[in-house]
Every structure is written in structure tokens, then in C-alpha cells.
Design a protein around this nucleic acid. Structure first.
Length: 486
DNA sequence: ATGTAC
């Protein structure tokens, strides 16, 4: 019953193993999985490694089919996968390589509060967040946009909501791509997708999405932490959400459009779920335009979630969010495909970097890193599980050499959702979390069981690999104290 | 991840 990868995993160095392209017919490049010995058993379990090999067959793939240490099975492509394709070599774009939740990502908001001052107020704070910030499957929120406005929102990105007093211009500066993915086309987003998104902007959703109150638990790199404005015991808010029903529908629409395109373009797919189109084809361009528009919706969603968190903090602590210095450290996507310049075999190329459960991690000096951080590198935000920890990392030079500027995105599941519910055996996960010092509120008891800490790998172990591989370096460890979930 | 199968 339990699937297992029995193919070759050749150790390259202490952080990386190779699946040679001889493993499977049609592989154009090797597979490369970033993992140390401690994580190998988790990598061999399930069939995510086989998915890494499948992705290596895609036309125009560059370098290697890559996977991060938080790899696990996903639709077609594994979660934790990175695939770069060259459009000038027939390189493809694939919805499965982005994921159903387009521009799922993470935002970290700082405060000037410290653990000791908020300790007596955590329950009140979590309650207030839970009742103010909509969460759960299909939930809608207080921000309603008609179809025309929703398309305008996708055409402008979070500038659209900032113009409506939901945030300040500085928020945009500290968002990946300044919160705006250019060259999208909201008119390529179907009416159906627009309708699903019109009243969901500013809602959390379900699954692994959350809003957490965290404290800085350890500062590993004092210099970078100082540049990022983080110090020990400081209170922060981490937000993990994506593009809700709108992004889901954009992905679904593209998968319908891409059905049977393999025949049209003569692409041999080892798995139907790898459905793709040449990036330069009409179908490829259509998906890219819609995906970019949906990505802008994702940034707007997190902007509105942040704004609601600011309002709740202001209410609970009786000061304005500006007085509480609730400024954004950064917002970064981990489900997206972007056209970026990278050096492949000594040549500069523009490639479609698919990051599915993988985070951009540009190093110091990269022009896309906000000016204030450019001398140290891009902030990377890694959500862990709700009982143990999350991390703030900084992009490192190795990412440009090895992973198309990419690092991990989280802890990675260690149990399937059904296995996690079974393991909980009806136990109240919220009570268990409370005994560990975390106040949790969720709209679904079962959902909470699926997300229990045990269902995930230890994020510290995942982060250790990307740190050692020089993809991104440890800056600060964050400890959860309050969490709201769908 | 997702109006957890129109």
C-alpha cells in the first residue's frame, strides 16, 4: 500500500542527492534533491522523488529538476520542487508546476511589542483575530468587489487596496516584486474565477493557511536581524495564505485548456498531471497572463489580511498600528512561475522558474532585493508548524549557483492529512497546543488535527539543509504563541 | 490548496 522510491539517490555532498537521468526514459536532466542523511528516510517514503524524475522529462528544462528538503507529493510536480525552462528552447509552462494555490505565500509583520507585555493578553488577542479575520473553506470577507473592480485589483496589485486606505505605500516596497507582477492580463481570468474571488480577498482560507502571533525565539545572525529590524522576544505576526478560490479556478481553467496539448505539441508526458504548453504558445501565454493576474490577487489578499491584523492589534492594545510600528518585514510567494535571468552553463538566459512550495531567496546585491536589505540579501519567510517554530532566513549566493535563486518553503508534511486525523485519534489538538504555550483557534476541529505539529517534519531540520547548502542562511527562529486557522 | 466531487 505504502509507496516508496526505490530508484537511485546518489549522494553529491552532505546536502544534496542526485537522481541520474539514466533512471527513467525521457529524462533530459538529472534530478537533484537537497537533503542531508537525516532527511533521507522521509525522501524515500512516498513518490515525490519519482515526481522529481518526471519533471526532468519536460521540454526545455535547464540545469536539473530540483527539489528542496521539504519535498512531498503534489499534483504532478512535487511540493518543494523547482523547474526552470528556457522558452527559446521550446521550454514549457505548467500549471502543476505552480500549484492550485497561485501565489500562496507568507508575510511577516513586525511590532514594537515584546513577549512579556503581551503575555497576559494572548487569549484576548487570538480571540479578536479569530472573530475579525475570516477563515475556513469558502469563507467570504468584508471587502466586496464587483467583477470590474476585481479585474482592476488584479491589474494593479496591492496598490489598488492601498489606494483604498488598506495599508501604506511602504508595504508595497517590502513585498516581492513590489507587490506587482507585470504583464498579467485580468481579462484572461474567466468570469467564473473572478466571481469566486470577488468577495474572498482578505480571507485566510483553510488547510495549512494561518495567521500566527509569534515571538523571536532566537537570533542566529545578529547583524542581519538588526538590518531586518528583529530582536529577541519581539512580537511578530506571520500570515500564510494565497489566492483563494480565484487562483484555484485559474489553475483549473488552465488544466482544462491544456488537456491534450501534449499531442498538439508532441510532448511525451510520463504523468497526465504534468500537463503543460510551450511558454511561447498561445495556450502558454494565456495561462501566464491569467497566472500573473491571480498572483497579484494573492498579494492583495495578504495585504488585506495584514490590514485586519493591524486593526485588531490597535483595538486590543488601544494604540494605532502606526504606534505599534506594525511594519511589514517582507512578503514572498512560494507558488509561482516567474521569467528570470539566470546563468546556466556559463550563459545568461531568461528562464521560466517554476517554484511550487519553494521560495525565492535572492542574495545580497540582487537588484530585486529592497534597497534597505540589498547589502545582506532578501528576507525569506519559512512557516513551520504551529507547535514548534517558523524561521526568517536571508537569501544566500549558493541559491543563484544551484537552485535558480530558490530555497525551501516550510517544514513539509510528514503525514498525509488522513494519517494525521487518524494519529490525532479524536484528541483535542487545541488543548495539546495550549499545554505547549500556544493558543489556537480554528473553524474546523478536523482541520486542526490535519495540521497538528506531528504531521510535519521538524522545520529546524529542513532549514539546516538550506543553510548548509548556502541557499539561504538562518537569521531568526520564531516561536508561535497564538494561531488562527481555517 | 479547493464552494474537500456539478
Amino acid at each position: 500500500m505504502k509507496e516508496r522510491f526505490n530508484g537511485p539517490l546518489e549522494r553529491v555532498d552532505s546536502c544534496c542527492v542526485r537522481i541520474p537521468k539514466s533512471y527513467k526514459a525521457g529524462m533530459r536532466v538529472d534530478g537533484m534533491i537537497f537533503a542531508n542523511e537525516r532527511l533521507m528516510e522521509a525522501i524515500r517514503e512516498g513518490n515525490a522523488a519519482d515526481q522529481v524524475a518526471n519533471v526532468a522529462t519536460l521540454p526545455g528544462i535547464q540545469g536539473a529538476s530540483l527539489a528542496m528538503p521539504d519535498i512531498h507529493w503534489g499534483y504532478g510536480f512535487c511540493i518543494g520542487g523547482v523547474c526552470a525552462t528556457d522558452p527559446l528552447e521550446g521550454g514549457v509552462i505548467s500549471p502543476g508546476g505552480v500549484g492550485y494555490d497561485i501565489n500562496c505565500g507568507v508575510r511577516l509583520v513586525k511590532t514594537n511589542l515584546f513577549w512579556n507585555e503581551i503575555k497576559p493578553h494572548v487569549r484576548e488577542l487570538v480571540k479578536a483575530l479569530f472573530y475579525s479575520v475570516p477563515s475556513g473553506v469558502g469563507r467570504t470577507g468584508k471587502y466586496k468587489f464587483d467583477a470590474k473592480e476585481t479585474r482592476r485589483l488584479m491589474g494593479q496589485g496591492p496598490q489598488f487596496v492601498v489606494n483604498r486606505d488598506c495599508g501604506v505605500p511602504k508595504d508595497l516596497e517590502y513585498t516581492e516584486a513590489n507587490g506587482f507582477i507585470a504583464d498579467g492580463d485580468p481579462d484572461q481570468v474567466t468570469d467564473h474565477a473572478v466571481k469566486r474571488g470577488s468577495d474572498q480577498c482578505g480571507t485566510l482560507g483553510s488547510g495549512n493557511h494561518f495567521m500566527e502571533v509569534q515571538v523571536v525565539d532566537a537570533v542566529v545572525d545578529a547583524e542581519v536581524a538588526k538590518v531586518f529590524g528583529l530582536e529577541l522576544n519581539q512580537v511578530c505576526v506571520m500570515i500564510h495564505s494565497g489566492s483563494r478560490g480565484l487562483g484555484y479556478q485559474v489553475c483549473d481553467d488552465a488544466l482544462s485548456l491544456f488537456r491534450n496539448l501534449d499531442k498538439k505539441y508532441g510532448i511525451d508526458l510520463p504523468d497526465r498531471q504534468l500537463a503543460c504548453a510551450p511558454a511561447e504558445s498561445p495556450e502558454g501565454k494565456k495561462y501566464i497572463a491569467a497566472m500573473r493576474a491571480a498572483a497579484n490577487y494573492g498579494f492583495c489578499n495578504r495585504q488585506l489580511l495584514m490590514q485586519q491584523a493591524r486593526e485588531v492589534f490597535a483595538h486590543v492594545f488601544g494604540r494605532t498600528w502606526q504606534d505599534l510600528e506594525m511594519h511589514q518585514l517582507y512578503d514572498v510567494a512560494h507558488n509561482i512561475a516567474k521569467l528570470e535571468e539566470h546563468t546556466v552553463d556559463g550563459k545568461k538566459k531568461k528562464v521560466w522558474v517554476h517554484r511550487k512550495g519553494a521560495t525565492r531567496a535572492f542574495p545580497a546585491g540582487h537588484p530585486e532585493v529592497p534597497e534597505q536589505f540589498r547589502h545582506v540579501g532578501q528576507p525569506v519567510i519559512i512557516p513551520g508548524d504551529m507547535g514548534r517554530a517558523s524561521w526568517v532566513l536571508v537569501g544566500a549566493p549558493g541559491s543563484m549557483e544551484k537552485t535558480f535563486g530558490t530555497t525551501c518553503h516550510g517544514a513539509g508534511r510528514a503525514m498525509s492529512r488522513t494519517a494525521a486525523v487518524k494519529a490525532a485519534g479524536g484528541k483535542r489538538i487545541d488543548k495539546e497546543l495550549e499545554s505547549r504555550g500556544v493558543i489556537a483557534m480554528a473553524s474546523s476541529r478536523l482541520g486542526l488535527a490535519e495540521e497538528q505539529p506531528n504531521a510535519y517534519k521538524n522545520v529546524d531540520h529542513v532549514v539546516e539543509v538550506v543553510h548548509d547548502a548556502d541557499l539561504s542562511r538562518k537569521v531568526a527562529r520564531m516561536r508561535p504563541i497564538g494561531v488562527i486557522k481555517g
